Computed example of a mutant assay.
Amino acid sequence: MLDRRLTPATDRVALESLRGIVERPDYTAGQPARLAVSVADLLTAPDGKRDRQVNFGADLTVIDRRDGLAFVQAALDGYCGWLREAQLTADQTPITHRVSAPATHIYPEASFKTPEKMLLSLGARLSVDAIEGRYARLTCGDYVPIQHISDQLSPDPVAVAEMLLGTPYLWGGNSRSGIDCSGLVQAALTACGIACPGDSDLQRLAFPQVTEIQRGDLLFWPGHVAMAASADLMIHATAWQMAVIWEQIPSAIARIDAAGDGPLLGVHRPA
Rank of each mutant, 00 (worst) to 15 (best):
P168K: 10
A103K: 13
I21W: 09
F220R: 03
A243F: 12
D180E: 10
D151H: 04
R24C: 05
Y107T: 12
T44F: 07
G78Q: 05
G48I: 04
L60N: 02
H268S: 05
D11N: 14
G141I: 05
Q186C: 04
G260H: 08
C196R: 01
P8K: 01
A58H: 03
P108Y: 11
T44M: 04
L189T: 14
P250K: 08
S17H: 09
T139G: 03
A9H: 08
A110H: 04
P168A: 04
S177T: 14
A75Q: 11
P25E: 09
R125E: 09
P157Q: 05
T44D: 09
T114S: 10
D129Q: 07
H236I: 07
D156F: 08
R215D: 11
L165A: 06
P168G: 07
S182Y: 03
L42G: 01
P108R: 10
R98Q: 15
V225T: 02
R65N: 12
L119R: 15
A70G: 00
T211P: 08
W171V: 10
I245G: 08
A74G: 05
R66H: 13
Q203C: 06
G141T: 12
W82K: 02
T238V: 04
F112E: 15
L233N: 13
Q203H: 04
V37P: 06
V54D: 04
G216K: 05
R34H: 02
G81L: 00
D3I: 13
H97K: 02
Y169A: 00
T238S: 01
S230P: 10
I213K: 03
Q31M: 15
Q73L: 04
S127W: 03
G81A: 00
Q214T: 15
M1S: 15
D129N: 07
V128S: 03
W171I: 06
T167Y: 06
G173Q: 08
A9T: 11
H148C: 10
D257T: 12
A191N: 08
R4C: 11
A191G: 06
A75R: 14
G57V: 00
P263M: 04
G183T: 11
R125Q: 14
V158D: 04
R176C: 12
A226W: 03
I21R: 13
T28P: 00
L43W: 06
T190C: 08
V128Q: 00
V22L: 07
A75I: 05
A259V: 10
